[in-house]
């Protein structure tokens, strides 16, 4: 068999045979993987940097109306100003607090309902159709009702987030319980596990990865909801900052708020992933990512 002197791995020879030889990734796997990783990190920055560069050029050269599309440098100096006055941190703290409390209530009630309906065909028959119908109701449309019921304090916004999150977590948890291999539960029973012991040692750990996927989704959703709610009601929070800046024609402050929301969502998602890794040391590092 003839071989070729080419750098790349697989080459057609003249005799009608294929000659397989080690490629660059096979000869120096460690160095190759390192270069590959640096490259991947680098190209992750290409998209946002080009985006902001184009924006900057378009804005300063007058292709875009500066009143509505201020240059990123203008937005940056506004951000510095808002941080100096404390306005940005305060708004973020208020919204984060609402989102987290709502998220916590939603996750706990969603898990409980998911486990109940996942384990009990009777409860499933009784409640699943009703809850499924409620799932599709746009929750923001409930805000006026919640204001009527809970007044105009923190409660209606937190309840709104909790309701939204509840459905995500409920569905994921119920499906996870129902798709759990029967042999897990049988193994528990054959070792003498009672219902509560089975819950603690078997059901909850078995469904934890899917629960965390739903919490990651919910964390993002809770921020969407709180920003939306703050648009329409109340006088504080990051959503209010965005909406209020827009109505005062302070577009640069609005962009600061929008970017801050994006960063907040990113950070919250990372925190959930980190907590998930702490609670599930048995799972491969990116288990949640693989499911998503």
């Amino acid at each position: 068999m003839t071989t070729t002197s080419q750098e790349s791995g697989n080459e057609q020879s003249t005799e009608g045979h294929l000659s397989f030889r080690p490629g660059p990734g096979d000869r120096q796997p460690a160095a190759y993987a390192r270069r590959r990783r640096s490259f991947e990190v680098a190209i992750a920055f290409v998209a946002p940097i080009s985006f902001f560069a184009l924006w900057q050029i378009a804005s300063t050269s007058g292709w875009l109306d500066e009143r509505f599309f201020p240059a990123p440098t203008t937005v940056w100096s506004t951000a510095v100003e808002l941080v100096r006055t404390g306005e940005l941190q305060e708004s973020l703290a208020i919204s984060t607090r609402r989102a987290l409390i709502g998220l916590a209530f939603g996750v706990v009630s969603g898990c409980a309902m998911g486990i109940l309906l996942g384990l009990s065909p009777l409860w499933r028959a009784a409640l699943e159709p009703f809850l499924s119908a409620c799932y599709t109701v746009p929750k923001l449309a409930l805000l006026p009702l919640l204001l009527l019921i809970f007044g105009i304090g923190e409660a209606p916004k937190i309840v709104l987030i909790a309701i939204t999150v509840f459905f995500f977590v409920w569905i994921a948890t119920m499906e996870a319980v129902m798709s759990m291999p029967e042999s897990y539960r049988e193994a528990g029973r054959s070792l003498g596990a009672g219902p509560w012991q089975a819950m603690r040692h078997i059901v909850i750990p078995a469904i934890l990865p899917q629960i965390f996927v739903s919490i990651r989704l919910s964390a993002g959703v809770s921020i969407l909801v709180i920003v939306g709610a703050e648009f329409v009601q109340g006088g504080d929070g990051i959503g209010y900052l965005i909406w209020h800046s827009w109505s005062l024609l302070r577009a640069e402050a609005m962009y600061v708020g929008i970017v801050a929301v994006a960063l907040l969502g990113f950070v919250l998602g990372e925190v959930v992933k980190w907590v998930g890794r702490l609670l599930m040391p048995w799972a491969p590092r990116d288990a949640g990512r693989a499911v998503m």
């Binding site: 291999p181 042999s183 897990y184 049988e186 193994a187 528990g188 070792l191 003498g192 596990a193 009672g194 012991q197 040692h201 078997i202 750990p205 078995a206 934890l208 599930m280 048995w282």
Partner: peptide, 21 residues
Amino acid sequence: DYSIFPWKTVLANIRLGLDLA
């Protein structure tokens, strides 16, 4: 198959029946 629990270490799996009792 599918009967030992992936979320428990080998020791915790073996100990499970004793923990339950």
